[in-house]
């Protein structure tokens, strides 16, 4: 897959009267054509700045930034305007023009691009049909719900058929149900129109739902990146682990463990569950093979990128060496972590 956005040691600093603030600190990152790339981080991590560098709403301070082969870091503002016609953007607060109708909002980028009215009208109808709001064309934004507003935002962002869509916290102002609706639409944009999407978010659920790859941003640096499944199943940093724990609550907390250890006499182990692991068959032979009794005391199994993933906490009861043997058997097919008092 060709690269559509490439950050090479990119930094961004803001000068204020008192000090220089480094928002982005030497980032290397490449986004491939056709993927949905998630950037996750807490507020203040530099996510919004990062995404604004791509379409030049903010200019890089150092390094090199290539977008579709063009060196946007060295472009003049007038050249950047042409680049922006090929990049759509949607926002947390939708940022619709209140003085224009839904159709007028969607037509705006087409006017900027110099489309003739009949062509504009045809394209607007096509886009509103795509996002399911054809019947609201003549309404004003303040007559729409949050989810509908974001769908208008998406239609407007896609007006000039961009190859790349930047989504800046696009679901953070929406309730969970509407969030899913908008995420499904973004997935449709990616799959049916082949648009590459960079999704900026602080919600791990958004990344889990639609992203192919993810980068974890902290203090302007990327602390972890990779395929979403890999990052989820094997996080390397505390920040990544904290984000994952917000969506996958299958690992007992310290309080839970205290309680479990008081309630159960056997040894407590966390067993990582993945797609190909046949945990049931191992456990169903635990007694006949090792003389060990088991109890499931905590855990959960979900899916990331359509692959099963989770963790079960088991109480294993039996002679010391037998339990060791069972743990060793499990350890040969997955990650097992014994919780000690």
């Amino acid at each position: 897959m060709p690269t559509i956005v490439q950050f090479e040691a990119v930094s961004k600093t803001f000068e204020t009267k008192q000090q220089t603030v480094t928002a982005i600190d030497g980032i290397d990152l490449s986004v491939e054509e056709g993927e949905i790339f998630g950037v996750i981080g807490y507020s203040g991590a530099g996510k919004s700045t990062l995404v604004r560098l791509v379409n030049g709403l903010e200019r890089i301070s150092a390094g090199r930034l290539l977008v579709d082969g063009q060196d946007v870091g060295r472009m003049r503002e007038s050249e950047l305007r042409k680049v922006r016609l090929g990049i759509g953007m949607i926002f947390q607060q939708f940022n619709l023009f209140q003085s224009r109708t839904v159709a007028g909002n969607v037509a705006y980028p087409l006017r900027v691009a110099g489309w003739k009215k009949p062509d504009r009208d045809r394209r607007v109808a096509e886009l509103l049909d795509f996002v399911g709001l054809l019947n609201r064309a003549h309404d004003y934004p303040d007559q729409l719900s949050g989810g509908q507003k974001q769908r208008v935002g998406i239609a407007r962002a896609l007006a000039t058929s961009p190859k790349l869509l930047l989504a800046d916290e696009s679901t953070s102002a929406l309730d969970p149900e509407t969030t899913q609706e908008v995420l499904r639409l973004l997935q449709k944009v990616n799959r049916e129109l082949g648009v590459t999407i960079i999704v900026i978010t602080h919600e791990m659920d958004v990344v889990r739902s639609i992203a192919d790859r993810v980068a974890v941003l902290e203090h302007g640096k990327i602390v972890e990146q990779g395929a979403v499944f890999d990052v989820f199943s094997n996080p390397q940093t505390d920040t990544a682990r904290r984000f994952i724990s917000t969506v996958i609550r299958n690992q007992p907390s310290d309080n839970d463990l205290d309680r479990l250890q008081k309630a159960h006499t056997g040894r407590i182990v966390n067993v990582e569950i993945h797609e190909s692991l046949r945990i049931g068959s191992i456990l169903s032979h635990a007694f006949s093979d090792h003389g060990v009794q088991f109890e499931v005391v905590y855990g959960g199994i979900g899916a990331i990128q359509e692959r099963s993933f989770g963790s079960l906490t088991l109480e294993l009861d039996g002679p010391e060496t037998s339990v060791d043997a069972l743990i060793a058997q499990l350890g040969s097919v997955t990650t097992v972590e014994e919780v000690r008092a």
């Binding site: 922006r84 926002f91 607060q93 940022n95 980028p109 006017r111 900027v112 691009a113 407007r156």
Partner: peptide
């Protein structure tokens, strides 16, 4: 709302177009 100005800039609009439209 400065966000709407940002949306217009992101759509490729220049300063004069932003003022009048």
């Amino acid at each position: 709302d400065p966000g709407t100005i940002e949306a217009a800039r992101a759509a490729g609009a220049g300063p004069w177009r932003i003022i009048f439209t």
